[in-house]
């Protein structure tokens, strides 16, 4: 099974119905993608497939043949977002954080609060009440565009 993982072509031998989540964690040894529910509700396992956020617990690896898969380990060009998650309190226990950041990375520049709330509705966080996450995404959005911090 060939696909591009974080910019590199990988070839994985796995049952085509094995969850992408398990292939990433077990076959590719990338454990930054987390399992919170196994039913696509919590978003902790969010990765990007061809640039779109998906819950990797609901994706058979057979369906990413030839696709571009990006995980938290391969997230480039979003350092400002990651740093803002630290400084604004967007990460507490951290288990939802990789998935949350992956989804947030698909937002356009300078998203409004409403856009952030809509985009992140598929990522559950039980620690923060989401406030720190909104502030982190907004801060990173402004930074990216040279706005005032």
């Amino acid at each position: 099974m060939r696909f591009t993982l974080n910019g590199k072509v990988v070839n994985v031998r796995a049952h085509p119905m094995k969850r992408l989540l398990d292939v990433l964690r077990e076959d590719c040894h990338l454990t930054g993608t987390k399992e919170g529910c196994g039913e696509g509700e919590c978003g902790a396992c969010t990765v990007l497939v061809n640039g779109a956020a998906v819950t990797s617990c609901l994706v058979p690896v057979g369906q990413v043949r030839g696709a571009r898969v990006t995980t938290i380990e391969g997230l480039k060009r979003h350092r400002a977002l990651q740093e803002a998650f630290v400084s604004e309190g967007g990460a507490q226990c951290g288990i939802c954080t990789p998935g949350m950041i992956m989804t947030a990375s698909t937002l356009g520049p300078s998203p409004s609060l409403d856009e952030i709330r809509s985009a992140l509705a598929g990522n559950l966080c039980r620690c923060t009440g989401y406030g720190g996450i909104y502030r982190a995404v907004q801060r990173a959005g402004k930074k990216k565009h040279g706005g005032r911090l």
């Binding site: 964690r25 990338l30 454990t31 987390k34 740093e83 630290v86 400084s87």
Partner: peptide, 21 residues
């Protein structure tokens, strides 16, 4: 002061290792 949290960097990069990892 809101100093950077000790575990912040590991958590936002996916390097923090939880039990299932």
């Amino acid at each position: 002061k809101s100093v950077p949290r000790k575990d912040g960097l590991a958590k936002v990069t996916g390097l923090a290792a939880y039990i299932d990892d």
